[in-house]
Design a protein around this nucleic acid. Structure first.
Lengths: 167, 167
DNA sequence: GACATAAGTTCTAATTTAGAATTATATAGA
DNA sequence: TCTATATAATTCTAAATTAGAACTTATGTC
């Protein structure tokens, strides 16, 4: 499957993966949320080649996640700032960081702590149901095809049957 | 930067990206949460080459996200099931799907709908603060270095100063 | 005996990424 | 004027990764 095909898949995960599903994009976005904005700043804090950095920034701009904004007229210089669409990636970034905090830290402990300005406490993110407020687990969620669904493959259906039989 | 270096970074995001930060791993995990377990089922529902699928499954097993379990003795056959560490990826998957639902769907609408078995309603995931329960936004969070932190680079510090000046 | 199933492995060609060097445009100083 | 610096890239070659197809192994079935 080509990258371009991913964008067209009738699947919200696949389409999001087309935007952020490579390691550099996620690391660049981490920097964005840490207030990094300029080409050379990204390049200094990530050990990314200039080539790839230019490419990924272009991609993120094309998808509307970043906006390329002039900050100086002569010579023309630009910085890359998060759009609302980009800011909306925050739960993804936070849940990735949180999983790493739980499952990937070494003996020295967490590299970063998060403080909620609203309540002034160190916190972890918790994902809840918008309707009843209960924390979500995979087993408590049932998936239905929506209006944008595609027929699932025969093998997929077969696997679903086996899954049901297991329950 | 090599993939192996990512795992060693003093950053929970980078370390998680080392595990799930490529498109195939995320798509494979999507299938896992949809109850797909067997090699040929993965291969049929994703248009992945057998080569890469074998490679990625091995990686996910190595990281403890999947477990390779025999389901038939002769000939020996295995299936791949999520460990608790793997199940804990659910908030990441859900937040990725949700962002796609908001920002990437076409006119036909969402490919999938989620029903919460607990309250029996269609829902969206919401990320809240573990301490005060308020929904999280990037701007309401302040980041501190934790015990596992590394000194940030001079350029990073410079960028942070500029960020402060902007506020 | 021929064919089918499941879970891979192996091979070559195409694509992507790494790493270093170079370009473009303008400012600042000797 | 000449030289050096800053910022944001682009270009080049070599190395690594991925795509796509064919092959392997160990049964079980018609």
């Amino acid at each position: 499957m080509k990258w371009d095909a991913l964008e067209e898949e009738p699947c919200s995960l696949a389409r999001t993966v087309a935007v952020i599903g490579d390691r550099w994009s996620l690391l660049i976005l981490r920097e964005c949320f840490l207030r990094i904005r300029r080409f050379d700043e990204f390049q200094a804090s990530l050990e990314i080649t200039r080539h790839l950095l230019a490419d990924r920034l272009k991609k993120l701009v094309r998808f509307g996640v970043l906006r390329r904004v002039p900050y100086q007229a002569s010579p023309k210089r630009y910085e890359y700032i998060l759009t609302q669409k980009g800011l909306d990636l925050y739960p993804i970034i936070m849940s990735i960081v949180h999983w790493g905090n739980i499952h990937m830290v070494d003996s020295r402990g967490r590299p970063m702590l998060h403080e909620h300005k609203t309540c002034k406490k160190l916190f972890d993110p918790v994902m809840i149901c918008s309707e009843c407020g209960v924390p979500l687990t995979a087993k408590a969620v049932h998936v239905h095809p929506g209006p944008g669904a595609r027929q699932s493959s025969p093998m997929h259906a077969k696997a679903q049957e086996r899954a049901k039989a297991r329950t």
